[in-house]
Nucleic acid binder design. Structure first.
Lengths: 229, 229
DNA sequence: GTCTATACCACGATAGAC
DNA sequence: GTCTATCGTGGTATAGAC
């Protein structure tokens, strides 16, 4: 009985409240723009609680990322494992691998229960974050997934030179993170209509088609190039 | 005579020193991480000089971007104008348009005189910057170029639906900005070798091939897709 | 007009009382 | 676990020297 009652009051409620508030405010105001006084006010906890539960603001940022990114990347690896198992020994199609990676992010965006959209956008910002501990953290969290997917693509595209593959993975990762993370302002640059920005199904089709084509591109350009005057 | 002597001491030397120092330190430590005390110390000027010449830190950031981005975007439009003029009435090849846009950024990277590399990386960070005035500024500065290039691509690809083109431009812009702006940490994710990161000629070939393929991609995926278990 | 010295308030972090 | 007081540092504003 006491255990049942205990379960109603989570053991780390303060922690969770801080994480939720931080995720939202980091997105709105940036990592340095969102002050601890603002975070704790929104979470309804004391200013010093962040320091008590996480140790520092940087550690809080790390916790915000790990909470969602660790499960996401684990899921990505499981998805690829399942795919290769079901394929037996035959090599996977590039589009299949792309979708396996994509789906985790897109599912996150569609999940309106948690702050999925917020978090995906937050991720995009982290890649360009300067000399903070954040940069290293993201690379570290992504490393195993990247290794795994790189190997899968190498098997799927045995004729593509290794160095070329690395660059194309880099381009693909860039397109993905930028597209999902782009703020309204940047969308405005290309004139995207906001209504279908979060239609995950359409986005998956469009992104997969674009990325697959780039990945499979011939080593030279396709269209005719005239000499510039 | 007095005029000759005056010329030795530029009218806005302090301004320029602040801009140069800021460009470098904003890249190293981020916009909020680079304090005004650090900036002014590196520039060898007084702390209050920033406020006198620019008004605020945000206004300084804007000035840093405008100094290089305004000429860059003007150059991009001129390049496209020249290209269309030399082509007469015939439509341009997509790869030509891509290269016209790309070359300005790549030339910036190769120009070791000014802080070209620094600035390009700085640009990438600005796209993901949160609710600061920076976001709006970048969109505003890019808008005319985007309109111009969008029209050129639309003429080059008359069979691609308009909405599809907008998305592909968005993907292309994402790849470009991410690739050029990526920090060492992110490069490490994909395992890129640092030595050829700034070989502009190679990068132009690789990026053009990748982006052209994505732009010309068929509306569905190309490779076979098995049903997932 | 340019530049400097300095004062002001908000921030992140910490120690210690409760 | 929580709260308060406090410290060093951040961006900003202004008064006055040149």
């Amino acid at each position: 009985m006491t255990q049942t009652l205990r379960a109603l009051k989570p053991p780390h409620e303060t922690r969770t409240r801080i994480l939720d508030a931080s995720e939202e405010l980091f997105m709105q105001h940036g990592f340095e723009g969102a002050s601890m006084r603002l975070l704790t006010a929104k979470a309804g906890v004391n200013l010093a609680a962040v320091n008590y539960h996480f140790g520092s603001k940087d550690a809080l940022i790390e916790a915000v990322f790990r909470r969602r990114l660790d499960p996401m990347n684990a899921e990505r690896i499981v998805a690829l494992d399942r795919l290769e198992k079901s394929a037996g020994g035959t090599p996977l199609a590039p589009a299949e691998i792309i979708r396996a990676f994509l789906r985790t992010s897109l599912a996150m965006i569609e999940d309106s229960r948690c702050g999925g959209r917020n978090f995906i956008r937050l991720l995009g910002r982290a890649y360009t974050e300067p000399s903070k501990p954040i940069r290293g953290l993201i690379g570290q969290l992504y490393a195993p997934v990247m290794e795994r997917y790189k190997a899968a693509f190498a098997r799927a595209l045995p004729n593509l030179p290794g160095e070329e593959l690395v660059w194309r993975l880099h381009f693909m990762f860039g397109t993905l993170s930028y597209t999902l993370a782009a703020t309204d302002t940047v969308q405005l640059i290309a004139g995207c209509k906001p209504e279908d920005r979060y239609d995950a199904k359409l986005l998956e089709e469009r992104l997969t088609a674009f990325l697959e084509a780039g990945l499979l591109a011939p080593l030279g350009v396709q269209s005719t190039v005239r000499k510039a005057a």
